[in-house]
Design a protein around this nucleic acid. Structure first.
Lengths: 211, 211
DNA sequence: TTCAATAAGTGATTTAGTCACTTCCTGTGA
DNA sequence: TCACAGGAAGTGACTAAATCACTTATTGAA
């Protein structure tokens, strides 16, 4: 029904009572269906207000909200994965970027200095914007999902361990490489950037917490 | 509760009536909670039998089951993404593989010839096993999730467009490179392998369906 | 014009029951 | 002794009719 009506994030759904009538089932049954959609962030409930379409409708990859962080591994595992995956994505971006991508990239690079609301506005997250410049939406969604893994830790890292000015400088150099259409430089700079962050965390955490 | 009890895939949960009693809510409410877990494949219902823990408990990345394929882009987009991401994963595997990884890899390579039940047994999918050999679980999960995107199309492709013998030969050569600990060769062979598949699909589909 | 009270609409949950399906056990007959 | 039809118990699926909790927009008095 969301698809057929072409609903976008922010749009309101009909009330559960009305949906129950429309689909000829009772409200508890409708609720079960809506809860499933809620689990993948396709819709969100706002008590007393209504149910609204959310960002999940056009997000194919997502993090499992039901896997606790205690069950998963260290944050270093995540950075190791990013170090493998993101450099080639940066290279692809350097090869395919449009002018629009460049302006978006510059915008998100500037955002690295300011307090992060990158969680509600993923397009402002530099590494997401970088993946977006590859022109491949699925690539962008993959990086976006990856950045949601251990989200709490990543916010903590941004606030405490990373050197914001150095981050910004790194980002600017990556933007340059992408602007110049230099895939190798973009890949190398991205790798070094992530390696530096990994190093900062590894030494701060100490080897005993590195797992 | 699943965590605390250390339940693994296949284990049964208590009945919804019992859960309702234990959490002091009614069955419809319990059902809503269970439906959310169902949406991310943490549990599965079997009518008349019970509800069971499923593979999702230890899967951090997953495909959104509520995004229709019509809303998403072409299958070529997916292959383009894989061509960017998988070669460096193969390189990481060549650098880090253990002997156990090698046997698992050989096993899954042989599986490329037989009819695919790779959907229920992801560890038998060659590209998943390859990512697993990197030693980074998150990397493996990322590739695993990516291979679930447009799953129907991918099965179709395996059955109709790919040359099974050539696939097998490609896989064996990648295994060799991984065995020899040659990251560059592993990356190059993986890239060529995926490019060949992409080419086969692109020409078969014809440019008009390529989007 | 401002702002507190109100009413209507919405999600959240309950209660009590019925239907549908699966599983396993048991008694019967070969 | 064994195979198997039949039944009972347990489970998920769903209904029905309410009530409670919360939000929002409207209304009317200060």
């Amino acid at each position: 029904m969301i698809e057929a009506a072409g609903l976008e994030p922010g749009d309101a759904l009909a009330s559960s009572r009305e949906l129950a009538k429309r689909f000829e089932v009772t409200t508890p049954t409708i609720r079960e269906a809506l809860r499933r959609l809620e689990a993948t962030d396709v819709i969100r409930f706002r008590h007393g207000s209504g149910t609204y379409v959310s960002g999940g409708v056009n997000r194919r990859l997502l993090v499992n909200p039901h896997v606790s962080e205690s069950r998963s591994e260290s944050v270093l595992e995540l950075l190791d994965a990013r170090i493998v995956l993101e450099p080639p994505v940066a290279a692809a971006a350097a090869a395919a970027r449009t002018d629009d991508d460049l302006t978006a990239l510059t915008l998100s690079a500037d955002n690295s200095l300011k307090p992060q609301y990158a969680d509600e506005r993923p397009e402002l997250h530099f590494h997401v914007a970088l993946a977006g410049a590859s022109g491949n939406l699925l690539l962008r969604e993959t990086i976006e999902a990856l950045l949601q893994v251990r989200a709490r830790d990543q916010i903590e890292i941004r606030h405490r361990y990373t050197d914001r000015d150095r981050d910004h400088a790194d980002h600017l150099r990556i933007v340059e490489a992408v602007r110049d259409g230099d895939p190798d430089a973009a890949a190398t700079l991205t790798r070094e950037h992530l390696l530096a962050i990994r190093e900062a965390i590894a030494t701060t955490l100490g080897p005993e917490q590195a797992r």
